[in-house]
Computed example of a mutant assay.
Amino acid sequence: MRMDWIPASAAAFVTGAMALTFGSLMLPSGSSTADTLQVARTEDGRWLAAAVIFFIASVALTLGLPAAMSLFDRRGRTLGMVSAVVLAVGFLGTAGYSMLIVFFRAIALETTLTGAQLDDAVHEAGLTVFLYGWIAGFYLGELLLAIALLRAGTIQKWVPLVLIAHVATLLVSSFLPHSISSALVLLVAVGFAGVAIEAVTRDAEQRKALPVGL
C-alpha cells in the first residue's frame, strides 16, 4: 500500500516550521510593556502580518504531524504518539496566540490603554494559564519527540539533538534581547525540517521496495 500522503504532510511540516520562524522574527517588541504597546500602535501592520503567519504555522505544523509519526515503527512509537498529542496542543495554542496578537493590536489602536494597565491584563490568571500552557505544550512536545526519535534510531542523531538544544534555550531566552531570543526559533525550524526530510526519504525507500503496481 503506497503512502503518498507522507510527502504532502512533510511539506506542511516544513512550511509550518518556516512560518513559525518568520512570524517570530517579524513580530516587533519593545524592551518594556509600554514600549511594546507603542510598537503595536506604530507598527500595527507587522503585528497583523505576524498573527496571520502564526496561524498558518499552526495549521501547517498540525498537518505535518503524521509525517513525523511515520518515522516510528516499534521502538519509541508510544512515546512518539504521546509527543504528537502534546505537540498538537502546542500547535493549536499557536493559533490561539495569533488571535491574541490580533486582539492586542485592536486594543492598542482603539483604546488609550497604558503600559501599567497592560501589565495588569497580562498577569490576569486566565491569560497566564493559557500562555504558559501553550509554551509548555510546545516545548514539552518537542522534547518528547526528540527523545522518541533518539529511541527509535530511524533518523540522524543531529536532528533530535537540535530539538533538545532548542528546548534548552528556554532556560536562557528570558535573559537575552528580543532579537536574539526570537532568532533561536531557527533551531526548531532546522530540527523540524530534518524530521520532514527523513520522513520523505524513508517513504521513498519503502515505496521502491514494494512490488511494481502496488
Rank of each mutant, 00 (worst) to 15 (best):
M1T: 14
R2S: 08
M3L: 14
I6V: 15
P7C: 13
P7S: 12
S9P: 14
A17P: 00
A17Y: 00
M18V: 12
L20T: 00
S24C: 06
M26P: 00
S31V: 09
A34K: 07
L37Q: 01
Q38W: 01
E43S: 12
G45C: 01
A60F: 00
L61S: 08
L61N: 09
L61G: 00
T62N: 06
L63I: 13
G64T: 03
M69V: 11
S70K: 06
S70G: 12
R75A: 15
T78M: 14
M81E: 06
V85A: 15
A95V: 03
A95L: 08
M99F: 05
V102K: 06
V102N: 08
A106Y: 09
E110F: 09
A116V: 12
Q117C: 03
D120F: 07
H123Q: 13
T128R: 13
V129E: 06
F130G: 06
Y132C: 05
A136V: 09
F138Q: 09
F138N: 08
L140Q: 04
L140H: 04
L144D: 03
A146Y: 02
A148Y: 06
L150S: 06
L150Q: 13
I155M: 04
Q156P: 01
W158P: 03
P160W: 07
A165S: 13
H166K: 07
H166G: 13
V172Y: 05
S173I: 10
L176T: 08
P177I: 08
S182N: 14
L187T: 11
G191A: 13
A193H: 04
A193M: 12
T201S: 09
K208H: 11
A209P: 07
